[in-house]
Simulated scan of single mutants.
Amino acid sequence: MPYSPKKPCRYPGCPRLTHNTYCDVHARQVSSYYNQYQRPKRIRPRYHRGWPKIRQRYLLRHHFCEMCLSQGRYTQATEVHHVLPLEHGGTNDFNNLMALCKPCHSRITAQMDDRWHKAPRQYHY
């Protein structure tokens, strides 16, 4: 399947073209900024140094997006989602994790309003 054309990085003043929202350099900066300043203080400790290892182990066992698989599509999983968010008592246990592609993870996060701290909703697929 052909790729869509690259578009400019959305970071102010960046001339790089990318398929994502931000180029690789600025994606790390924006993520770091979010984790440091926008993620609620009570949640920061829950994303400890062990989280990248947990995430990587889960993705090694679950290669495809679980939502796309339920619809008969094979899409590579790139992100790990907490079914019950850590903020609401969830854990990093594999039973509480889902392997998702970027579009599915963004859609679920927006529907849960997790980043904007509204009432929690759980989505089990």
Rank of each mutant, 00 (worst) to 15 (best):
S4G: 11
P5H: 09
P5W: 03
K6H: 08
K7A: 08
C9G: 06
R16G: 05
L17P: 08
L17R: 13
T18N: 10
H19Q: 11
N20A: 14
T21Y: 02
Y22H: 13
C23L: 06
D24A: 14
D24Q: 13
H26G: 09
R28S: 08
Q29A: 10
V30N: 02
S31F: 04
Y33W: 09
Y34G: 13
Y37I: 04
P40M: 01
R46P: 02
R46T: 00
R49Q: 09
G50F: 10
P52M: 09
P52H: 06
K53P: 01
K53T: 11
Y58F: 15
L60K: 15
R61C: 10
R61Y: 01
F64T: 09
C65T: 03
E66R: 02
L69P: 08
S70Q: 09
R73M: 14
Y74R: 15
A77W: 00
V80A: 05
V80Y: 02
H81C: 10
H82V: 01
L84W: 01
P85A: 09
L86V: 00
E87F: 04
H88W: 05
T91L: 06
N92P: 12
D93T: 03
D93R: 11
D93G: 04
D93L: 10
N95F: 08
N95H: 12
N96E: 03
N96L: 11
L97T: 00
L97Y: 01
L100V: 01
L100S: 04
L100G: 06
C101I: 02
K102V: 03
P103W: 01
C104F: 01
C104W: 00
C104N: 03
H105T: 02
S106F: 01
R107W: 03
T109I: 01
T109Y: 00
A110P: 06
Q111V: 00
Q111S: 14
M112S: 15
M112H: 04
D113L: 13
D114V: 12
D114L: 13
R115N: 12
W116Q: 14
H117K: 15
K118Y: 03
A119M: 11
A119K: 12
Q122L: 14
Q122Y: 04
Q122P: 03
H124E: 11
H124D: 14
